[in-house]
Design a binder for these strands. Structure first.
Length: 150
DNA sequence: GCCAACGTTGGC
DNA sequence: GCCAACGTTGGC
């Protein structure tokens, strides 16, 4: 069982959208390192939902992996903004898992609160210049954050 | 909207 | 393989 953090801009797709949809394809990720992490996700893994480019940015809740990564359909769709002409059906570049709504935190945890929390110093999100949209979180870090949101 | 940090592309 | 130019991310 592993833990992760995944970012989305709430204007694009927020935790409330996911609550309504129940399950979503975590598609559109076009960064190799983030893709590799998504391919490591196993069914049942828990994922923190981070609102980026928001006011304020922060962690909004928890999702669960319900389907392991498969080729991201948006890479083949010419009309999609994530279309990738270099990707073929035989050799897809991009993958996405399906994530299910687990819960929305009673207490939204802002980025500045995360920065001020002991034990989260190594969280990749908080490292200088980190822009990685999907990354692992340790069990301890996950527990600290969930504890703050409850 | 600004801009620093980072990733990707492509000429050489 | 280097690296400048360019594009994107994301906090502020």
């Amino acid at each position: 069982m592993n833990y992760w953090l995944a970012k989305s801009e709430p204007e694009e797709y927020s935790i409330d959208d996911l609550k309504k949809d129940k399950v979503c394809h975590w598609d559109g990720v076009r960064n190799y390192q983030a893709r590799n992490y998504m391919r490591e996700m196993q069914k049942g893994d828990l994922v923190l939902f981070y609102h980026s480019n928001a006011a304020p940015p922060g962690v909004a809740g928890v999702m669960k992996v319900v389907k392991i990564a498969y080729p991201d359909p948006s890479q083949f769709d010419k009309k999609d903004k994530h279309f990738d002409p270099k990707s073929t059906g035989d050799n897809p570049r991009w993958f996405c898992p399906d994530l299910k709504f687990e819960r929305k935190f009673k207490q939204f945890i802002s980025l500045s609160e995360l920065r001020n929390t002991k034990g989260l110093e190594k969280l990749p999100l908080l490292q200088r210049g980190s822009r990685l949209s999907v990354h692992p979180v340790s069990k301890r870090e996950f527990e600290i954050i969930v504890g703050m949101g409850t």
